[in-house]
Nucleic acid binder design. Structure first.
Lengths: 226, 226
DNA sequence: CAAAGCCTTATTGTCGACAATTTATTATTA
DNA sequence: TAATAATAAATTGTCGACAATAAGGCTTTG
C-alpha cells in the first residue's frame, strides 16, 4: 500500500499492532487531536494490559503524535496552522538536502524506478483529473522515494519515521485537496530531471521551492479565510 | 551547566533519572558503542525493575542512542565515520534553516544575549588557547542558542532533543579537539552579525558553510589517516 | 566430519497488582 | 459567597511473575 511506511518493519508484537491501529486512528482523527489519552480506558478498548499500551504510546511519542507529561498523562498533539507551517519549514530544509543527496547517491535503477512511477502518476492523473486523494498518495510516494534515495539513514529516520506521520495527520484533518496538483506534478518532473542529471545543487533548490510553494499556498488560503 | 539540554525538563520520575545516567554513560563511552544491552543486568545495576528500565530505554531510543529489535533486544548505536558524516549532512540542512529562522524570529534581547555570550567565549578563548574542551562546550552553547532562537518547536525538538546527544557522543568518543577553534570562532561572529542584521538568507548560507567546513575538516583527517 | 534438528537456557514481551502522585470533590473558614 | 484546606477518587509510575520467543549447546544423522 502506498502510504505504508518504508522504515517500519512488519508489526510482530501486540504493542506494534496497537501502535499501528492508534497511528491510523490519530491520523484520520478517530482519536481527536488535542484529546487526553486515558490509559485504563484505551487498554480496555484494545483488550491489552496497560504495560503493552504504554509501549505503544512510547512509539506514538517517538513520532511526535502524542505528548507526555510526567505524572499527568498523554495528549494527542494539536493541529494548528502555526504547527503546520513549522513542519513545512523543517521539510523544506530536510527534503531539500535529501534531494541533493539523492542526486549524488541514487543508483541508476532507482532513478529509472522514479521515472516509471512518475509516468504512472501522469496517466492516473489524466484519468481522474482534479480528484486529489490518489494524487496525494502519489505525492507522498514521490517524496518518500526521494528521501529513500538520499541513502542517508538519519534523513530517512527523521522524515519517514517521524515527520511524515504528522504530515499525513495534517492532510487528513485539514482536508487538503489542493489545486496545486497539476503544478506539483510538473515540479516533480523537473526535480527528477535534476536528480537524473546528477545535479545536486539544482535538485535541492527545486525541492525547496516545491515545498515552499506548498507552504505559501497554505498561507494564502489562510489569509483569504480571514 | 552548559551541556544540559534545554528541551528536557527536570527529571522527576526514576525512569527519567536512569535515562539521564545512561545517557551520560553512553555519550562518554562507559556503556560501549555497539554493545548489547541486557535488561536484567542493567535493571540489577541500577536497582530498578525491568519495566522502569524499559521506560528509560524508550527515551534513549527516542534520541537514537540505542536501537531495538522485537524479541531480540537493544544495542547501543555504533560510531562510524559514515554515521558521523550523515549527521553533518542533517545538521547542515537543519541548522542552516534554524539560523535563517533565528534571523527572522529572534528577539532583540536574545540577540544581545548571544553577542554577550560570544564576547565571553572570546575572553575564555584568549585565556586558554588551544585547549578545546571548554571551547567545545562554547561551540555547543552557540549552536543551541541559534536553534532555540528559531522559535520553531519542530527544529528545536529534532536538533536539541535528539540529534545533539549523538553529536556529543561522537565528540566524546572520537575525541575531537579540532584545530578549527579559532576559525570557528570567527565564523560564529559573522553568523551572529547576519542574524543581527535580520539577513536570514545570509545567516543560513554562513551556518551551512560553517558546518560544511567542519565536515570537510573531518573528511580530510580521515583521508590523511588512510 | 559436517550439517541439520532438537532441547535447554536465557532474554524479551505481556500481565495484574500495588505505590505514589495528581485531580476532583467536599468541608471549612474568612 | 469566595477562597482555602482537607479528603476521596482516579490516574500514572513501579514492581515482580509468567508466557512467548530467540540464542546456544547437544545429539543425531548423512
Amino acid at each position: 500500500m502506498a502510504l505504508d511506511n518504508p522504515t517500519t518493519q512488519a508489526a510482530v508484537t501486540t504493542a506494534d499492532k496497537v501502535f499501528e491501529q492508534m497511528l491510523h486512528a490519530i491520523v484520520d482523527g478517530t482519536i481527536k487531536a488535542g484529546s487526553k489519552i486515558s490509559e485504563p480506558e484505551l487498554a480496555k478498548n484494545y483488550q491489552i494490559s496497560r504495560s503493552t499500551l504504554r509501549e505503544a504510546l512510547n512509539r506514538l511519542e517517538k513520532c511526535h503524535l502524542i505528548e507526555r507529561k510526567a505524572n499527568v498523562g498523554s495528549r494527542v498533539v494539536e493541529c494548528s496552522i502555526a504547527g503546520l507551517l513549522e513542519i513545512y519549514v523543517v521539510r523544506e530544509a530536510l527534503e531539500g538536502m535529501a534531494c541533493r543527496q539523492a542526486a549524488i547517491n541514487m543508483t541508476d535503477d532507482e532513478i529509472l524506478e522514479m521515472k516509471a512511477m512518475l509516468k504512472q502518476h501522469a496517466s492516473a492523473k489524466a484519468l481522474r483529473d482534479g480528484i486529489s486523494y490518489y494524487q496525494e498518495e502519489g505525492d507522498l510516494d514521490f517524496h518518500y522515494k526521494v528521501i529513500l534515495g538520499s541513502h542517508n539513514q538519519q534523513l530517512i529516520n527523521i522524515l519517514c519515521g517521524q515527520l511524515y506521520h504528522l504530515v499525513r495527520m495534517y492532510r487528513c484533518q485539514f482536508g487538503m485537496n489542493s489545486p496545486r496538483v497539476t503544478k506539483a506534478f510538473d515540479e516533480h518532473s523537473r526535480i527528477i530531471e535534476a536528480i537524473s542529471d546528477r545535479d545536486g545543487e539544482l535538485a535541492e533548490i527545486l525541492m525547496r521551492r516545491h515545498i515552499a510553494a506548498s507552504r505559501k499556498n497554505i498561507e494564502n488560503k489562510i489569509a483569504q479565510q480571514q
